[in-house]
């Protein structure tokens, strides 16, 4: 073991850092899905935490398991089997009854989904859809409508009062995403999970939506878990970044440190794929190859077939978790030095 690295194996939790009071603590979360032939592990032993008001990004390519993880936190997908612990404000979500879990959704934790086109019910008015979270809790129609209007105003939806009775098809993509955000925020949750909230939007609209999210998160001291494949949108938003690859978190660090000193070759690859104003590159580099499918992961470090710094050990031994001097939690043999 190297002098400057500490090796842990994932069972021992990472050392407690100066961090806001913990809101969400995920421990050893694994997600499996039963297919016709076999049990496939989509997410393997993932642990992380989110503090109150903290903005955390979970980054990875499609198929890395990040969306599955996000949905698991709210137990949205009933077809997968969850194991481990998800502590939210002192409650283990995985042991709640379905109705107790339903009571958490919307009120304590909200979620925004990728495609605002298909996230809205085409046959229900915007006002009713935003107010629904409150109506479920038995809040009067009138009050719910007023609060829906307030949130839409907060999200800078123009002429919100007139548009409460409009239907989704009458809205543009960016406006729909604000409505989707309003649906998640109207219950005043402590945590907002945003699963690729801007992917379906064009770049300018993307920035506006992220700025709004930034503003609201600060004003309400709302914790946000931002799920994305795009390192570019993470930089200005997140306090902390987790990088996910093939169902595991391979690197985690404060955002500034992660961007300054990416440790895992995969993280470096992702960062090199982002166009940056301060660095001139001939062309955007992307990581060669494609991420493995969960049913057929490579042995050892699952990234080794695509890694430009792969060593002999990488194809046979799965790297444990190490902490580097920059404070990164990383799973890579370059730092394990075992």
């Amino acid at each position: 073991m190297g002098v400057d690295t500490i090796l842990t194996d994932g069972i021992i939790p990472a050392p407690v850092r100066r961090r806001p009071e913990a809101l969400l603590q995920v421990e050893q979360l694994s997600i499996d899905i039963a297919t016709r032939d076999a049990n496939v592990r989509l997410v393997d032993n993932v642990s992380f935490g989110i503090g109150r008001g903290e903005r955390v990004a979970l980054v990875g390519e499609s198929g890395s398991g990040k969306s599955v993880t996000a949905q698991a936190l709210m137990r949205l997908n009933s077809r997968v089997k969850l194991s481990g612990r998800v502590n939210f404000d002192g409650k283990d979500l995985l042991s709640l009854s379905p109705s107790q879990m339903a009571a958490m959704r919307g009120q304590r934790m909200g979620m925004v989904f990728q495609d605002p086109m298909s996230s809205l019910d085409p046959l229900m008015t915007i006002g009713d859809q935003v107010a629904e979270t409150l109506r479920i809790r038995g809040i009067s129609k009138r009050n719910a409508r007023q609060r829906a209007l307030d949130v839409l105003d907060e999200l800078k939806v123009e002429r919100a009062a007139e548009r409460l009775d409009s239907f989704p098809h009458e809205f543009s993509g960016g406006m729909r995403q604000r409505v989707v955000l309003a649906m998640a925020l109207v219950g005043e949750p402590d945590l907002l999970i945003a699963d690729e909230p801007t992917t379906a939007l064009d770049v300018r609209v993307q920035e506006r939506v992220l700025d709004l999210l930034d503003e609201i998160s600060r004003r309400r001291s709302l914790a946000v878990l931002l799920i994305t494949h795009d390192m570019g949108i993470v930089a200005g938003f997140a306090d902390r970044v987790m990088v996910m690859y093939s169902g595991r978190i391979v690197e985690e660090n404060e955002a500034t440190l992660l961007f300054a000193e990416p440790q895992h070759p995969y993280t470096r690859g992702l960062l090199e794929a982002v166009p940056r104003a301060d660095v001139t590159v001939d062309r955007l580099r992307s990581i060669p190859g494609a991420p493995p499918v969960p049913a057929a992961r490579p042995s050892g470090c699952t990234f080794h077939p695509r890694c430009d710094r792969a060593m002999a050990i990488c194809s046979s031994v799965e790297p444990g978790e190490a902490i580097t001097p920059s404070g990164a939690r990383v799973r890579c043999h370059l730092y394990g030095a075992g």
Partner: peptide, 19 residues
């Protein structure tokens, strides 16, 4: 896809089905 946000609002199964 439409139903995930509804579920995330805390809607019960009967509400998802009926509404």
């Amino acid at each position: 896809d439409m139903m995930l946000p509804v579920r995330a609002k805390g809607a019960s199964t009967s509400r998802m089905v009926l509404r």
